[in-house]
Amino acid sequence: MIFPFITQRSGICEPRMLRFMGAGGPETGAERSVEPTERHGQTLDRIDQMIGDNMRKLDGIDTLVAENVDLLAQRVEDLGKQAKEGAGKTVQRTQEFLFQRVQHASDTVHMLIQETLDVDREGRQNIAERRTVNITDPRVLQLSEDGLSLSKMSTRLHEMMGRKLDEKNATGDALDASLEDQEGTGRSVTWQKTEGGLAVAKQEGGTEQASQPEKEKYVPSPSAEKSMGDLVLAMKQANSEVAADKKVDGPAAFQALSQEFHGMKPEQQDAFVVWVNEQIGNEPYKAGKDNLSGTLRFDRTA
């Protein structure tokens, strides 16, 4: 890669650098694991514990008593159920991990295509007196093909994960509903929720009246705030506005924000983009939603 080293100062192709740093080869940090290792093996450890308990009790059981045979069978069935649950969680974690990586690769392909088209467009404008841009670069077609493959993989993974996500959402919705009932409010604020919509303002006289729809506002989670803070700091360091003595992982912060963005509804994504741009402030970057790929992107404005 030639561009990333040149462009650290010039600002061209920064997105490419950002993406390759996050998931490229070993020299660019690919081995940095994002596996959900903290939960790894909890269910399996519980099964191990159950097996140990059962083994200890097994010797003391009198199998001449029919009830004890039932008890043994019950324990085997319970273990089977737990083991299947453990396998299910493992598959889910693995699919989520893969999905995240495929999405990231897909975003990278999209960014590369855009970058190539931009370079072509600029080149043509400068050299060939502003002719209409025509995609003739065969590598763009190659990249498009790669992107299509990734989209198909992503769709398949989404289908595989769909059932579990639906279950999760149903549980989440039920939880929100019960919280709302308890609070007596029409909304709840969680990390992913947005405020706003058609607000019902309670008047002093006790009558309720629908007010004008308010614009959605993103309520950041602590993790989002931290990631955003890291990213802004990385931007400042890249622009030499602050000393680079504090180590900050910009690509990881970008990845975390992208992940949050990906799990939101379209209106929440818009609110999220507004919030991100507020946080960026005067830095020469602008966050936006890529309507084609539906991903979060950052463009350099100066």
Binding site: M1, I2, R16, A23, G25, A105, T116, D146, L150
Partner: peptide, 13 residues
Amino acid sequence: AYASLEQTTNAMD
């Protein structure tokens, strides 16, 4: 996937 992409981008560069 990334090695392949990197190869493509290197050729483009």
